[in-house]
Design a protein around this nucleic acid. Sequence first.
DNA 1: TTAATAAACAATTTTTCAGTTATATTAGCA
DNA 2: TGCTAATATAACTGAAAAATTGTTTATTAA
Lengths: 131, 131
Amino acid sequence: MLVKSPETITNLSDCNLSQFPPAVLGMIAEFFKVLSETSRLQILCSLKSGTKNVSEIIEITGLGQANVSKHLKMLSQSGIVERTQQGVQVYYTISNPLIFTICDLVCNSLATNLQQQEEQFKSLQSLQNYF
Amino acid sequence: MLVKSPETITNLSDCNLSQFPPAVLGMIAEFFKVLSETSRLQILCSLKSGTKNVSEIIEITGLGQANVSKHLKMLSQSGIVERTQQGVQVYYTISNPLIFTICDLVCNSLATNLQQQEEQFKSLQSLQNYF
DNA sequence: TTAATAAACAATTTTTCAGTTATATTAGCA
DNA sequence: TGCTAATATAACTGAAAAATTGTTTATTAA
């Protein structure tokens, strides 16, 4: 056999974080790592409104060409964006819009944290009035 | 004023990735970075079934003590877990179960990718039969 | 008070990775 | 065939951060 099958994880779709084998945890970590960079998030943002070619992405984000190319490769390899070549131009598109759902959830989580911090701050402030 | 207010991001809760200011993208990236480590995911896994103290976490994960301590500090600072001291022991607990929702979404995304890879593999394999 | 244990902290080493510069590849065109 | 533009790749540098080792603080119990 010339081509090897991708390692299939049984029932990955209905998953439960508490009993993940290390290999799956590694995959999840890898996925998060791709999203843990401001530049890559910027690129994803620029793609939210639709497919763009590399030059457009460079212009929107203001990042360097080689830099963008490297990030796009990473995003592409992790399956977050898809690559299509049309002549000299190469177009990239979000392959799984679930990304944005995930980001929105993170936002909510962050918002909750900020709110809690603000409340703690207020109660701390009212304490200060006694001194 | 002795205490500074945490920087408040307006309307972070109903957010839209396409028009995030760089500061917010940075916060999101930071959040993902915390989740982008197998060790930290392991720790979170060990906490899914309930509150644990540091020794228990060390035993479950098999990680080194100093290592776990550092990771817990990071998880705690990012608001993902909460710290409670009881005598000599220090207990940690998941403070925002949204984490697991997010991880599950990532799993679904990964599962989709794997499925696509498998289909590509199959079609590639059937092509091979011609040679 | 002392000994033992739990957890945090500090310092160090090693690895990883983002960004940059320079070079290569590829497609379209004169 | 050579030229130009779009994208990719390679090599390098500096900074961040992961893991390890050793040390320190704090709490319980003898």
